[in-house]
């Protein structure tokens, strides 16, 4: 398997994971638990940073940083902004 340059969204997931951990929003163990709760299926179907953003998100919701409703609403809004990652950024 060749190495690949990480996409910007992947680097942002990495940064969010490190920063939220450093700020004490969750622990490595919390991330670990979320990853394990996903079940084996997630490890077959989803990429590394897909699993990480899911784990980060779950821990932030559990920590009360924002609600699941807020997340869902925002993801819908983002879908309406444009068809690509760049077009879907705010501003």
């Amino acid at each position: 398997m060749d190495g690949h340059d990480f996409a910007l969204w992947e680097k942002r997931v990495d940064a969010l994971m490190v920063l939220c951990g450093a700020k004490g929003f969750f622990t490595v163990d919390g991330l670990r638990r979320a990853l394990e709760d996903m079940g084996e299926d997630a490890f077959e179907k989803h990429s590394y940073y897909e699993r990480w953003i899911a784990a980060v998100n779950q821990n932030l919701v559990e920590a009360g940083i924002y609600s699941l409703e807020e997340l869902g609403t925002r993801m819908e809004e983002i879908a309406a902004r444009g068809p690509t990652y760049g077009a879907a950024q705010d501003g």
Binding site: A7, L8, W9, R12, V13, L16, L19, C20, K23, F25, H46, S47, Y49, E50, I53, A54, V56, N57, L60, I65, Y66, E70, L71, R74, M75, I78, A79, G82, P83, T84, Y85, G86, A87, A88, Q89, D90
Partner: peptide, 25 residues
């Protein structure tokens, strides 16, 4: 970086924006 927007990319954008808006990051 211009492939069709995925569900997980949307989640990353949403998580990031919410953290910023709430003054956490």
């Amino acid at each position: 970086n211009d492939e069709p927007l995925t569900y997980w990319q949307r989640m990353e954008i949403a998580v990031r924006e919410l953290l910023i808006e709430k003054g956490r990051i």
